[in-house]
């Protein structure tokens, strides 16, 4: 009994020892190994949930020998990580909030990578009658006037920031029983909206990804204000010592490289019949 007890206690340690062989892939033969091989990328849930990073990160790691730790959080949290120097590179979609970090000197080398767009989705019955409207703010105003149920992310993500900006343009202070905050990611929020027959603002990529599991249709799209632009930026090593600026720059270079841009533009075409992101590095 005593011996078997000891064996049981030792088991996890043994497993740890056995499992430690799963180190990240080594760099390619031709490349010199980077001096600091680990990069911490703080990004939004949409880039991970859409599957784009699962495609790009392994390719980048193989080409350069870096290992990328992807931390997928809301844009608000990702920007906060950048501001504290807790990440090396950010890939986010909240231009106004990003500019504040540029101005405070917390990030440098901000570059445009790609865009997609936001769409207003809701139940096919469309109780607020917003289908086909081209003015997103006016559509929100109508939802508020009819008190039709609206689910907000409520998590300070890029999508939530966009939604708040649109409410402001609509001149509405959203509050009341019809306006509910999920406090969760886009996928979960869409599911809630679908279950409750509510409206919500979503990025097109996540919606397309989940469309089959949702009772929601696209009602408003095409407004210029619904553009969803992603930028990559390097956390400023002058302000935050310890940042792997070299690795961060390598990742930013990779994302804006014409070859990668092509991959981004193709992503999703085979599954959804349309791309999830539109590459636009070099534009502003």
């Amino acid at each position: 009994m005593r011996r078997s007890l000891a064996c049981l206690l030792v088991l996890p340690v043994l497993l740890t020892a056995c499992g430690s062989g799963t180190t990240p892939p080594a760099s390619q033969s031709g490349e010199a190994k980077p001096s600091n091989p680990t990069i911490l990328l703080a990004t939004t849930t949409s880039t991970q949930d859409s599957g784009l990073l699962d495609l790009l990160v392994p390719d980048f790691e193989e080409k350069t020998g870096y290992t990328v730790k992807v931390i997928a959080v809301g844009t608000g949290a990702a920007l906060a990580m950048g501001k504290r120097g807790d990440a090396d590179v950010l890939l986010v979609h909240a231009p106004a909030a990003e500019m504040k970090l540029v101005e405070s000197g917390d990030v440098v080398d901000r570059r445009r990578v790609m865009h997609n767009d936001f769409v207003l989705v809701g139940p096919a019955e469309d109780p607020a009658q917003v289908k086909g409207m081209t003015d997103a703010a006016a559509a929100l105003k109508r939802i508020a006037q009819t008190q039709a149920l609206f689910i907000s992310r409520g998590d300070d993500s890029g999508t939530h920031k966009k939604e708040k900006a649109l409410w402001q343009e609509a001149g509405v202070q959203p509050a009341g029983a019809w306006y509910q905050e999920s406090g969760q990611g886009m996928g979960a929020t869409l599911k809630i909206a679908s279950e409750k027959g509510a409206y919500t603002l979503t990025d097109r990529g996540t919606y397309l990804h989940l469309r089959d599991k949702l009772d929601l249709v696209i009602l408003v799209e095409g407004d210029d204000r619904l553009q969803n632009i992603y930028h990559v930026m390097v956390v400023n090593p002058q302000k935050h010592p310890g940042v792997n600026a070299e690795g961060a720059k390598a990742f930013a270079d990779y994302l804006t490289d014409p070859e990668t841009q092509k991959v981004i533009g193709e992503y999703g075409k085979d599954r959804f019949g349309q791309p999830l992101f539109f590459p636009d590095a070099g534009q502003e």
């Binding site: 799963t22 990240p24 849930t45 991970q48 949930d49 699962d54 730790k69 992807v70 931390i71 997928a72 969760q184 990611g185 886009m186 996928g187 979960a188 869409l190 599911k191 990804h209 989940l210 599991k213």
Partner: peptide
């Protein structure tokens, strides 16, 4: 842990991720 694939992803965090992806 950060739910990093190949490094810190465990069964509970993977479950959360797949739920948020809609792969119920």
């Amino acid at each position: 842990g950060g739910n990093i694939v190949g490094q810190t992803r465990v069964l509970t965090t993977a479950t959360v991720l797949e739920t948020s992806k809609g792969n119920f």
